[in-house]
Write a protein that binds this DNA or RNA. Structure first.
Lengths: 234, 234
DNA sequence: ACAAAAGTGTTTCTATTACACCCATGC
DNA sequence: GCATGGGTGTAATAGAAACACTTTTGT
């Protein structure tokens, strides 16, 4: 069936057929560095053997966000679950894909610390491999994916300032130094410890999780993101 | 030709055909109020006779922005020219259009003052009419256009704060009180005159255009947006 | 002279920056 | 006891907000 127009049968004829894709920039922290999950494209399609963002076509009855989750899982084995996923821009240049008209909705996902080790390089059926590589200094990318990645990083930085996206990079409870390394990795610069603490604690969004964690040096206090239930706890 | 798949011939079969549309929220000021350009849908399609944002399908070799301009011109007679046009979100709920799978890229346009009078209600070939109606308090809208409009307004407010989009609502030269009414109309609240002037003048982006304009009361100084050429003029 | 709109300064408060030392733990 | 990383306070500065009167013009 080369003309599966069932879903389009009721559409006016001026609706030109285009391929609708999603691309996902999935970020995580590793060794204090912002990493992005990339796949190495297989040998059959365009841009063979080059790195690319996980991406694929949206199915007929599929939400954009659902498609992004499915594509990510299919190409990298990574299951995003209820983690942060956000659409940030749609790329529609007519010739951005040599195969024809493909419009891609760029998505941005954030994964918690430890993900880089848990999913080192799982390849999907159409890819040669996947890897978490430096987001600020990525390899050459297929299609217009360098542009897409650049915009994803910009949006990520915005979200860090105007929303509290940073805890998404961390497990459920975390220490303030950990939270600070998230900000530093995403912004690409260092921050003052005291001012950072003052700022994040002044927001009132973090609750002490009572416990402390051990390691080298003095143990740090654990915090948990404020939710509506435990808001009033002193 | 009910199966115009030329542009898709090289695409993999998993690329489900979807209709790709653009919708445009075109804003302008009128009587100190933020208005949005709406069309009244014709009697044949879905949501007949209800108000909607101007919108239509993207053509085969057409950029998203170009499509937005064409659709706007076709449905309302409004020629946007080099004015501000910006994509802000893509709406992809599977059943947002009863005719089938239609994904729409929402665009936001800003028109200068006086546009509302110059283009009062020009109807396009598929519409019953067009009108500039209250953006903060619109009539019932077709499809998910109320949602789209809401997001457009939010983005507009953001752009006012983090970019200097406000002069787009005005002619080439304008007075500070005029600029203030733009901010007030978009934000939906009043601002302090002195603080407003201090803030916008401190940015150093406005150059006095020397002249003054007449009316009732004391004439106001005219300003022009700073450009790179006249930047150094004292 | 008066109505109508433009223009102007100061004070207060709040948020941001810069900056250096002591504390708790493991070894 | 020392190395390692966690935790703390204050002073200076910059930006935001509150606030009321004078100036210029047309009639």
């Amino acid at each position: 069936m080369s003309c599966p127009d069932a879903a389009l049968s009721a559409l006016p004829t001026e609706a030109a057929p285009v391929g609708l894709a999603v691309d996902v920039a999935a970020f995580a922290l590793h060794a204090g560095e912002l990493r992005v999950l990339l796949t190495r494209r297989g040998g059959s399609g365009p841009h063979a053997h080059t790195w690319a963002l996980p991406g694929g076509f949206v199915q007929e009855r599929e939400d954009l966000g659902t498609a992004a989750l499915r594509v990510l899982r299919g190409e990298t084995g990574l299951d995003l679950g209820p983690r942060h996923l956000e659409q940030f821009f749609t790329f529609g240049e007519p010739w951005r894909d040599p195969r024809g008209r493909v419009v891609s909705v760029g998505h941005l996902a954030v994964l918690p610390h430890g993900t880089v080790n848990a999913y080192p390089a799982q390849a999907g059926p159409h890819t040669q491999g996947a890897a978490w590589l430096s987001a600020h200094d990525p390899p050459a990318l297929a299609f217009d994916h360098a542009l897409i990645l650049g915009r994803a990083i910009k949006r990520l930085q915005l979200r860090l300032e105007y929303a509290d996206l940073a805890p998404e990079f961390l497990p459920d409870t975390f220490t303030l130094p950990e939270l600070q390394t998230v900000h530093e990795a995403v912004l690409g610069r260092t921050l003052d410890k005291r001012n950072f603490r003052k700022r994040v604690l002044a927001q009132g969004q973090l609750h002490p999780a009572g416990e402390r964690r051990s390691g080298v040096g003095r143990p740090a206090l654990l915090y948990r993101r404020a939710t509506l239930e435990n808001e009033g706890t002193p």
